[in-house]
Amino acid sequence: MKINNTYLFLLLLLCQFVFCQNNDRKEFCGFVRADSLSVEGVNIVNETSQKYAVTDKNGFFLLFLKEGDVLVFSAVNLVTLRKKLQKSDLDNPILQIQMQIESIPLKEVIIKEDSKISAENLGILSKPAKKYTVAERRLYTARSGLLDRPLNWMSGRTKQLRKELAVSEKEQLMAKMEYLFEENFYIETLKINKDYIRDFQLYCIDNADFANSLKTKNKTLSKFYIITLAKNYNKITVYEN
Protein backbone atom coordinates (compact mmCIF):
# COMPACT_ATOMS: atom_id res chain seq x y z
CA MET A 1 0.00 0.00 0.00
CA LYS A 2 2.87 2.32 0.86
CA ILE A 3 4.51 1.57 -2.48
CA ASN A 4 1.31 2.36 -4.36
CA ASN A 5 0.99 5.70 -2.58
CA THR A 6 4.59 6.59 -3.42
CA TYR A 7 4.04 5.66 -7.07
CA LEU A 8 0.86 7.74 -7.20
CA PHE A 9 2.67 10.70 -5.63
CA LEU A 10 5.48 10.53 -8.21
CA LEU A 11 2.97 10.25 -11.05
CA LEU A 12 1.05 13.32 -9.85
CA LEU A 13 4.32 15.20 -9.47
CA LEU A 14 5.32 14.31 -13.04
CA CYS A 15 1.93 15.38 -14.41
CA GLN A 16 2.19 18.66 -12.54
CA PHE A 17 5.66 19.23 -13.99
CA VAL A 18 4.47 18.52 -17.53
CA PHE A 19 1.45 20.77 -17.05
CA CYS A 20 3.63 23.61 -15.81
CA GLN A 21 5.97 23.15 -18.75
CA ASN A 22 3.09 23.38 -21.26
CA ASN A 23 1.41 26.14 -19.31
CA ASP A 24 4.48 28.33 -19.80
CA ARG A 25 3.98 28.21 -23.55
CA LYS A 26 1.80 30.55 -25.54
CA GLU A 27 0.10 29.90 -28.84
CA PHE A 28 1.97 31.56 -31.70
CA CYS A 29 1.18 31.96 -35.37
CA GLY A 30 4.03 31.18 -37.74
CA PHE A 31 4.61 31.75 -41.44
CA VAL A 32 6.96 29.76 -43.68
CA ARG A 33 8.27 30.96 -47.02
CA ALA A 34 10.84 29.85 -49.59
CA ASP A 35 12.19 32.22 -52.25
CA SER A 36 9.57 34.86 -51.30
CA LEU A 37 6.69 32.37 -51.76
CA SER A 38 4.55 30.84 -49.01
CA VAL A 39 4.95 27.07 -48.70
CA GLU A 40 2.19 24.55 -48.03
CA GLY A 41 2.76 21.18 -46.36
CA VAL A 42 5.86 22.01 -44.30
CA ASN A 43 6.14 19.78 -41.22
CA ILE A 44 7.07 21.60 -37.99
CA VAL A 45 8.14 19.55 -34.96
CA ASN A 46 8.78 21.11 -31.56
CA GLU A 47 11.52 18.81 -30.27
CA THR A 48 11.19 20.26 -26.78
CA SER A 49 7.45 19.73 -26.28
CA GLN A 50 7.09 16.90 -28.87
CA LYS A 51 4.21 18.77 -30.54
CA TYR A 52 3.90 19.24 -34.29
CA ALA A 53 2.02 21.21 -36.92
CA VAL A 54 1.77 21.50 -40.73
CA THR A 55 1.58 24.71 -42.76
CA ASP A 56 -1.67 25.41 -44.61
CA LYS A 57 -2.03 26.50 -48.24
CA ASN A 58 -1.01 30.05 -47.27
CA GLY A 59 2.10 28.92 -45.38
CA PHE A 60 0.70 29.54 -41.85
CA PHE A 61 0.79 27.27 -38.78
CA LEU A 62 -0.12 27.40 -35.06
CA LEU A 63 1.97 26.01 -32.16
CA PHE A 64 2.40 26.55 -28.43
CA LEU A 65 5.92 27.89 -28.02
CA LYS A 66 8.30 29.46 -25.55
CA GLU A 67 11.86 30.74 -25.53
CA GLY A 68 14.40 27.95 -25.86
CA ASP A 69 12.15 25.56 -27.79
CA VAL A 70 13.84 23.80 -30.70
CA LEU A 71 11.79 23.63 -33.91
CA VAL A 72 12.55 21.44 -36.92
CA PHE A 73 11.10 22.42 -40.31
CA SER A 74 11.10 19.88 -43.13
CA ALA A 75 9.39 19.35 -46.49
CA VAL A 76 9.99 17.76 -49.87
CA ASN A 77 12.42 19.79 -52.02
CA LEU A 78 13.29 22.08 -49.08
CA VAL A 79 16.46 22.10 -46.97
CA THR A 80 15.60 20.92 -43.43
CA LEU A 81 15.89 23.78 -40.93
CA ARG A 82 16.53 23.42 -37.18
CA LYS A 83 15.90 26.57 -35.14
CA LYS A 84 16.20 27.34 -31.42
CA LEU A 85 13.73 30.08 -30.49
CA GLN A 86 15.15 33.28 -29.03
CA LYS A 87 13.25 35.94 -27.14
CA SER A 88 13.46 38.23 -30.19
CA ASP A 89 11.68 35.56 -32.29
CA LEU A 90 8.68 35.60 -29.96
CA ASP A 91 8.50 39.37 -29.63
CA ASN A 92 6.88 39.56 -33.08
CA PRO A 93 3.16 38.76 -33.53
CA ILE A 94 4.04 36.29 -36.32
CA LEU A 95 7.04 33.97 -36.28
CA GLN A 96 8.50 34.23 -39.78
CA ILE A 97 10.64 31.37 -41.09
CA GLN A 98 12.70 31.48 -44.28
CA MET A 99 13.57 28.13 -45.86
CA GLN A 100 15.76 27.27 -48.83
CA ILE A 101 14.83 25.21 -51.86
CA GLU A 102 17.00 22.12 -52.14
CA SER A 103 18.81 22.08 -55.46
CA ILE A 104 19.63 18.79 -57.17
CA PRO A 105 22.74 19.03 -59.37
CA LEU A 106 22.51 17.33 -62.77
CA LYS A 107 25.56 15.95 -64.52
CA GLU A 108 24.35 16.57 -68.05
CA VAL A 109 21.08 17.40 -69.79
CA ILE A 110 20.65 16.76 -73.51
CA ILE A 111 17.56 18.20 -75.21
CA LYS A 112 16.73 16.84 -78.66
CA GLU A 113 15.42 19.14 -81.34
CA ASP A 114 12.10 17.27 -81.51
CA SER A 115 11.69 17.34 -77.71
CA LYS A 116 8.49 18.87 -76.30
CA ILE A 117 10.35 20.31 -73.30
CA SER A 118 9.61 24.01 -72.89
CA ALA A 119 9.52 26.67 -70.18
CA GLU A 120 5.74 26.23 -70.06
CA ASN A 121 5.87 22.42 -69.68
CA LEU A 122 8.50 22.71 -66.95
CA GLY A 123 6.33 25.13 -64.97
CA ILE A 124 8.73 28.07 -65.39
CA LEU A 125 6.07 30.01 -67.29
CA SER A 126 2.33 29.74 -66.64
CA LYS A 127 1.64 30.39 -70.34
CA PRO A 128 3.74 30.51 -73.53
CA ALA A 129 6.05 33.51 -73.83
CA LYS A 130 4.80 36.19 -76.20
CA LYS A 131 6.39 35.99 -79.64
CA TYR A 132 7.01 39.39 -81.18
CA THR A 133 6.66 40.10 -84.88
CA VAL A 134 9.29 42.04 -86.85
CA ALA A 135 7.12 45.19 -86.69
CA GLU A 136 6.68 44.85 -82.91
CA ARG A 137 10.43 44.41 -82.37
CA ARG A 138 11.21 47.47 -84.51
CA LEU A 139 8.75 49.62 -82.60
CA TYR A 140 10.10 48.39 -79.24
CA THR A 141 13.67 49.22 -80.32
CA ALA A 142 12.63 52.70 -81.46
CA ARG A 143 10.89 53.42 -78.14
CA SER A 144 13.63 52.07 -75.86
CA GLY A 145 16.89 53.72 -74.88
CA LEU A 146 17.59 57.14 -73.44
CA LEU A 147 18.23 58.86 -76.79
CA ASP A 148 16.43 56.58 -79.26
CA ARG A 149 12.94 57.51 -78.10
CA PRO A 150 13.12 61.34 -78.49
CA LEU A 151 15.18 61.15 -81.71
CA ASN A 152 12.81 58.68 -83.36
CA TRP A 153 9.80 60.71 -82.20
CA MET A 154 11.19 63.94 -83.71
CA SER A 155 12.15 62.26 -86.98
CA GLY A 156 8.72 60.69 -87.36
CA ARG A 157 10.17 57.17 -87.38
CA THR A 158 8.12 56.09 -84.34
CA LYS A 159 4.89 57.21 -86.02
CA GLN A 160 5.80 55.31 -89.18
CA LEU A 161 6.66 52.19 -87.18
CA ARG A 162 3.30 52.39 -85.41
CA LYS A 163 1.58 52.42 -88.79
CA GLU A 164 3.64 49.42 -89.88
CA LEU A 165 2.73 47.61 -86.67
CA ALA A 166 -0.98 48.31 -87.20
CA VAL A 167 -0.75 46.96 -90.76
CA SER A 168 1.17 43.92 -89.53
CA GLU A 169 -1.45 43.19 -86.85
CA LYS A 170 -4.24 43.43 -89.42
CA GLU A 171 -2.41 41.05 -91.73
CA GLN A 172 -2.10 38.53 -88.89
CA LEU A 173 -5.81 38.83 -88.08
CA MET A 174 -6.70 38.41 -91.74
CA ALA A 175 -4.60 35.25 -91.89
CA LYS A 176 -6.41 33.87 -88.84
CA MET A 177 -9.79 34.64 -90.42
CA GLU A 178 -8.83 32.86 -93.62
CA TYR A 179 -7.77 29.86 -91.55
CA LEU A 180 -10.97 29.77 -89.46
CA PHE A 181 -13.59 30.50 -92.11
CA GLU A 182 -13.73 29.12 -95.65
CA GLU A 183 -15.09 31.08 -98.61
CA ASN A 184 -18.35 29.09 -98.67
CA PHE A 185 -19.05 30.14 -95.08
CA TYR A 186 -19.05 33.81 -96.12
CA ILE A 187 -21.24 33.23 -99.16
CA GLU A 188 -23.73 30.59 -97.97
CA THR A 189 -23.99 31.23 -94.22
CA LEU A 190 -23.24 34.95 -93.90
CA LYS A 191 -24.76 35.88 -97.28
CA ILE A 192 -21.77 38.03 -98.21
CA ASN A 193 -21.28 38.75 -101.90
CA LYS A 194 -18.14 37.00 -103.14
CA ASP A 195 -16.72 40.29 -104.44
CA TYR A 196 -17.14 41.88 -100.98
CA ILE A 197 -15.50 39.15 -98.85
CA ARG A 198 -12.19 40.99 -98.55
CA ASP A 199 -13.91 44.23 -97.65
CA PHE A 200 -16.05 42.40 -95.07
CA GLN A 201 -12.95 40.85 -93.48
CA LEU A 202 -11.42 44.31 -93.06
CA TYR A 203 -14.71 45.51 -91.58
CA CYS A 204 -14.61 42.66 -89.04
CA ILE A 205 -11.05 43.10 -87.82
CA ASP A 206 -11.76 46.76 -87.13
CA ASN A 207 -14.18 45.54 -84.47
CA ALA A 208 -12.29 45.33 -81.16
CA ASP A 209 -14.34 42.45 -79.71
CA PHE A 210 -13.98 40.31 -82.81
CA ALA A 211 -10.26 41.09 -83.10
CA ASN A 212 -9.74 40.09 -79.48
CA SER A 213 -11.57 36.79 -80.01
CA LEU A 214 -9.19 36.03 -82.88
CA LYS A 215 -6.16 36.88 -80.76
CA THR A 216 -7.33 34.59 -77.97
CA LYS A 217 -8.13 31.83 -80.51
CA ASN A 218 -11.72 31.55 -79.29
CA LYS A 219 -13.40 30.17 -82.41
CA THR A 220 -16.86 29.94 -80.82
CA LEU A 221 -16.79 33.60 -79.82
CA SER A 222 -15.36 34.62 -83.20
CA LYS A 223 -18.21 32.85 -84.96
CA PHE A 224 -20.76 34.57 -82.75
CA TYR A 225 -19.31 38.02 -83.48
CA ILE A 226 -18.88 37.46 -87.23
CA ILE A 227 -22.53 36.46 -87.66
CA THR A 228 -23.64 39.68 -85.94
CA LEU A 229 -21.17 41.75 -87.97
CA ALA A 230 -22.39 40.13 -91.20
CA LYS A 231 -25.96 41.24 -90.50
CA ASN A 232 -24.83 44.82 -89.93
CA TYR A 233 -22.54 44.75 -92.96
CA ASN A 234 -25.29 43.45 -95.24
CA LYS A 235 -27.60 46.24 -94.08
CA ILE A 236 -24.89 48.80 -94.89
CA THR A 237 -24.24 47.38 -98.38
CA VAL A 238 -27.97 47.27 -99.15
CA TYR A 239 -28.34 50.88 -98.08
CA GLU A 240 -25.30 52.01 -100.12
CA ASN A 241 -26.45 50.15 -103.23
Score class of each variant (00 low, 15 high):
74 S>Y: 03
76 V>I: 08
79 V>I: 14
81 L>V: 01
82 R>L: 12
83 K>G: 01
84 K>H: 11
84 K>P: 03
86 Q>T: 13
86 Q>K: 14
87 K>M: 11
89 D>W: 11
91 D>W: 08
93 P>K: 14
94 I>E: 10
96 Q>K: 12
99 M>Q: 10
99 M>Y: 12
100 Q>G: 02
100 Q>C: 02
100 Q>E: 13
100 Q>D: 08
101 I>Q: 07
102 E>D: 02
103 S>I: 07
104 I>Y: 04
104 I>H: 09
105 P>F: 05
106 L>A: 05
106 L>W: 02
107 K>D: 07
111 I>R: 05
112 K>W: 00
113 E>V: 09
114 D>Q: 12
115 S>F: 06
116 K>S: 11
116 K>D: 09
116 K>H: 10
118 S>G: 01
118 S>C: 00
119 A>F: 04
119 A>D: 07
120 E>K: 15
121 N>L: 15
122 L>Q: 05
122 L>W: 00
123 G>N: 14
127 K>I: 11
128 P>R: 15
131 K>Y: 00
132 Y>G: 02
132 Y>E: 12
134 V>W: 10
135 A>I: 00
135 A>C: 01
140 Y>F: 11
140 Y>A: 11
142 A>E: 06
142 A>K: 04
142 A>Q: 14
145 G>W: 06
148 D>C: 07
148 D>T: 13
152 N>T: 12
152 N>Q: 00
153 W>F: 09
153 W>D: 03
154 M>L: 15
155 S>R: 15
156 G>H: 05
156 G>Y: 08
160 Q>E: 15
163 K>E: 05
164 E>M: 01
166 A>G: 02
166 A>V: 00
167 V>S: 02
167 V>T: 07
168 S>H: 12
168 S>G: 01
170 K>P: 03
173 L>F: 03
174 M>V: 10
178 E>A: 11
178 E>H: 03
178 E>K: 08
179 Y>S: 08
181 F>W: 03
181 F>V: 02
